[in-house]
Design a protein around this nucleic acid. Structure first.
Length: 425
RNA sequence: CGGGGUGUUGUGUAACGGUAGCACGAAUCGUUUGGGACGAUUUAGUCAGAGUUCGAAUCUCUGCACCCCGACCA
């Protein structure tokens, strides 16, 4: 992509609004644009990252046996009445169609996937089964905040699994925990993400959240220093021992956590629930077991907010100059920067390198702008945060080389142009 | 939803009730040319409506929007 043509502009001035670092950087670097409170557009750079995150999540879900589907955003009121969530789920967007017919905008999809599964699952032979989708969700949050971290419209992967027994669900649930950690590893936030025991909300007594530690987070978690498992503050006081290693959970005289536990602010990047029969029951989702008896299907659900994860990645990977994208999700692998020169050879060489890298399938953002000073280009490159910078200038051409610099590191290497492709292999 | 705050050009900010200014951006020209370079010229704004006043960005009211704290959060 040519930087001279890109559908966004960077902004030198810090934004006045909002508290979160990720929002400031993503907006200033031209990844996102706010339309209203809690609603954002993804510009070319942001959308590229979002698609990379989507790819990672999709691959991992498919590896876990999930089949991708796409369910409707627009949903009938009746289904939500059946589960009681038409009135109990405060964040549900409701709207009126013609003739006063009422609809819900999908905040989550148990009300759609459960009756859908009823048309597919009849026998123990049909189980287990799991489906997922990556789709825009709508939640009428009373207060949107922290930029892209808490929004009213957001991209989410939600998976639903169906099982013949509790044991089978338990097994699958544990498998998904591993898969989720692998996803967060690929997103570059594994070392800050903790499996956290949390309230089950309207689903079940407890659930597990994947909480990424950051000052921008709105949750408080307590991390067991023995095994690095965490407990969400909302249930910390009712849990007597670490759910993983039995580390004693006593409280200090001040009411805070005892030694052996660390309190941290965190943002929830994933959440998994054992639904049991909570949604199979109202929709009469049953199956015939081996002994011909009729049993309710046991369900689980597993969510990851993609757009929130994008913000979380930035919170965890930035410095005072800008974003530092993990390689796997960076919008581009390389940022080719041509410095201004009167000698045509500089531009010609840069163009040649750009074409060669493209031919090799390497994603490159090419700063071909002629009216920008070197300092300006470097500052913008730091802000955008592409992992590898390739500089072409009169200076580098004297050595038949380009200059290579990793974002966030101060080591500059000269590499012969002929050798350049190898760096990306 | 409760509480608080703020709305001035694309962005960030100034202006006692008395000429709406500055920086960045954008545009043109020239000079520069390895960390947001310099000069000149230009561009564009008081959230909306009502009120008080000789006069309102400034005071009052209503509405709208955004931000922050809290509550809520599959």
């Amino acid at each position: 992509m040519l930087q001279s043509k890109i559908f966004s502009k960077t902004n030198k001035n810090k934004l006045a609004e909002g508290e979160s670092v990720s929002n400031d950087l993503l907006a200033r670097a031209g990844f996102i644009d706010q339309l209203m409170a809690g609603v954002f557009s993804f510009l070319p750079l942001g959308f590229l990252v979002l698609k990379n995150i989507e790819k990672i999540i999709r691959e991992n879900m498919e590896n876990a046996g999930g089949q991708e589907i796409l369910m409707p955003v627009l949903q009938p009121k009746e289904n939500w009445l059946k589960t009681g969530r038409w009135t109990s789920l405060d964040v549900l967007f409701k709207l009126k169609g013609s003739g006063d017919k009422e609809y819900a905008l999908g905040a989550t999809h148990e009300e759609v996937v459960s009756p859908l599964a009823k048309k597919v699952i009849f026998s123990y032979r049909d189980l287990p089964m799991s489906v997922f989708q990556i789709q825009t969700k709508f939640r009428d949050e009373l207060r949107a905040k922290s930029g892209i971290l808490r929004t009213r419209e957001f991209l989410m992967k939600d998976m639903y699994s169906f099982h013949a027994s509790q044991e089978d669900l338990d097994k699958y649930y544990d498998k998904i925990i591993k898969v989720y950690f692998n996803i967060f590893k690929e997103l570059g936030i594994r070392n800050k993400t903790y499996l956290t025991l949390a309230s089950g909300g309207s689903f079940s007594k407890y659930s597990h959240e994947f909480q990424m530690v950051t000052e921008a987070g709105e949750d408080l978690i307590y991390i067991c220093q023995k095994c690095k498992t965490a407990i969400n503050k909302e249930i910390f006081f009712e849990i007597k021992n670490c759910p993983n290693c039995n580390n004693l959970n006593k409280f200090s005289a001040q009411g805070g956590p005892a030694s052996g536990w660390e309190e941290k602010k965190a943002v929830e990047v994933g959440n998994i629930f054992k639904l049991g029969t909570k949604y199979s029951a109202p929709f009469d989702l049953k199956f015939r077991d081996k002994d011909a008896s009729e049993k309710p299907v046991i369900m689980g659900c597993y969510g990851i907010g993609l757009s929130r994860a994008l913000g979380a990645v930035v919170e965890a990977n930035c410095d005072e100059k800008g974003i530092m994208w993990p390689k796997k999700i960076a919008p581009f692998t390389g940022h080719l920067i041509e410095l201004k020169s009167k000698r045509k050879i500089v531009k010609n060489t840069a163009q040649k390198i750009y074409q060669d890298l493209k031919k090799e399938g390497i994603k490159v953002l090419y700063d071909d702008r002629e009216d920008k000073s070197a300092g300006e280009k470097f500052a913008e490159a730091d802000l955008i945060g592409i992992p590898l910078r390739i500089i072409v200038s009169e200076k580098t051409l004297e050595k038949k080389s380009v200059e290579i610099k990793e974002r966030g590191k101060n080591i500059v290497k000269f590499v012969k142009i002929k050798q350049l492709i190898k760096i990306f292999k």
